[in-house]
C-alpha cells in the first residue's frame, strides 16, 4: 500500500553567492541545493517566518546581494509513505533516485517541474508548483493504481 498525504511545508528560497550558500544554516530545516546560486530550506509551515529571518540574517552579513524569499504559498507538497514510495517517481518521471538516504532530486514529475526529498527507503516528500497540485495528485493515483494508493488528510510535513 502507498499512503499519499498532502502536507503543509514551508519553502524558503535563498539566492546568493554559491560559496556563501554552502554555509547556509539549516536551522532544523531540510536543505536542498536546487541551483548554483539557489538553496531551499524546507520545514513544517509554522517555522516559515523564523526560517526566513534566520536565512536573511545570515545572507545579510555574508552576501549583501543575496535575497531570501518565503515562497511557501507557491508550492504544494505530499509525503508518500510505503515500501514502494519510490515507485511514484518511477511511474511518473525519468528522474533516477539515488539509493542513499536522504536524497534530493529535481526534474519533471507527471510532466511538471518538481523537487523530491527521499527521507528514508519508505518515505518521500514531493513538492510541485501549487498551480499543478490537482494534476499531480490525480496522476499519482492513476499511475500507481495497482499499488493501492490511500489518500490521507492534510498534515504538517514531518522531516
Amino acid at each position: 500500500m502507498l499512503e499519499l498525504a498532502p502536507v503543509r511545508a514551508a519553502v524558503v528560497r535563498c539566492f546568493g553567492d554559491p560559496r556563501v550558500l554552502d554555509g547556509l544554516p539549516a536551522a532544523g530545516a531540510a536543505t536542498a541545493r536546487v541551483a548554483r546560486d539557489e538553496a531551499w530550506l524546507v520545514s513544517p509551515s509554522a517555522a516559515r517566518d523564523a526560517l526566513t529571518q534566520a536565512a536573511k540574517s545570515y545572507l545579510a552579513g555574508a552576501d549583501p546581494d543575496g535575497i531570501v524569499v518565503d515562497q511557501t504559498d507557491g508550492w504544494s507538497a505530499w509525503t508518500i509513505t510505503g515500501p514502494q514510495a519510490a515507485m511514484v517517481l518511477a511511474r511518473l518521471s525519468t528522474i533516477e533516485l539515488p539509493s542513499q538516504r536522504p536524497a534530493f532530486v529535481q526534474g519533471a514529475v507527471a510532466e511538471v517541474p518538481a523537487k523530491a526529498l527521499a527521507q528514508a527507503a519508505d518515505r518521500l516528500h514531493l513538492i510541485v508548483p501549487a498551480q499543478y497540485a490537482h494534476h499531480v495528485s490525480r496522476r499519482i493515483t492513476q499511475a500507481c493504481a495497482d499499488l493501492d494508493v490511500k489518500v490521507l488528510e492534510s498534515r504538517e510535513i514531518a522531516l
Partner: peptide, 9 residues
Amino acid sequence: HVVNQTVPQ
C-alpha cells in the same frame, strides 16, 4: 537574482 512570483502571488 530572479524569482518567479507568478504562483506564490
